[in-house]
Amino acid sequence: MNRDIQFDDAGKLRHFLTVDGMSRETLTGILDTAESFVTVGEREIKKVPLLRGKTVVNLFFEPSTRTRTTFEIAGKRLSADVINLNAARMSVTKGESILDTVRTLEAMHTDLFVVRDSASGAAHLIAKHLPPHVRVINAGDGRHAHPTQAMLDMFTIRRVKGKIEGLKVAIIGDLLHSRVARSQIHALKTLGAAEIRAVGPRTLIPTEIETLGVAATSDMEKGLRGVDVVMMLRLQRERMDGQLVPSEREYFNRYGLTEEKLRHAAPDATVMHPGPINRGLEISSGVADGPRSVILEQVTNGIAVRMSIMATIMGGSEERI
């Protein structure tokens, strides 16, 4: 996949499509800026004028609650006009192609598209076919990437642990269908995590994952031993066509995160989940709602991180028109 289109000729970030190939400096810059946006959410007037007069279209060809909502809030706190389109219910069902939909919206002077689609590479495709002053953020494409989720996860880890360098991290569950896991792995590696483990049934761990420098295991105890951060993934039953997991009860018994299994991790281990959670399937309610869980902090942090990404790619756009 072509990642050069994320940067302009001067090396400035103009689209945010994948964290794969981005420098540590770029990622750290986004996280640092997000810290300042956190305080905006704590003010009397939770708005700054950076994107005043800009139009942001949330173009979601797949359902989403938290990602779409936090992008909407992020855009509004930056003073942009935000339009939400659940395209699955619109023109696409009438046979219009994605690019025709995007071109139509571009003709209405959209400045930034936030795109989610079930096809890998959809956001790249759109970015390639738009004029240079229009920006694109990937809000999840197929099994490929979900870079803003990975960034809010990195932000949350950094806030809780103070750093990412040197941490041991286990990513647990359905890695096969997970665009979140792919983006997390790239971000963790770039930001200097000491060890990344992929834990889950063999049927749900992609075979090529070890080429990314990730140690794969189907042994939950071994995978959890001594880790600082436990990143749970949602079991994506809607994407499974074959028999990839035996039964839900057996899956929970072996891979569901419970307080008992969590004892194998470091005593101060942090538990994360991108949501929506399947309680009693990949995680017990006791852990999800327990003191180690930062699942709701992840949602809150998503706003500041998405504001940071939007402001970073939209700044300085005028010169290129």
Binding site: K12, G29, T33, A311, T312, G315, G316
Partner: peptide, 9 residues
């Protein structure tokens, strides 16, 4: 000047 020069890193 945000539209012209972008955000101060």
């Amino acid at each position: 000047d945000f539209s012209r020069v972008g955000l101060n890193p």
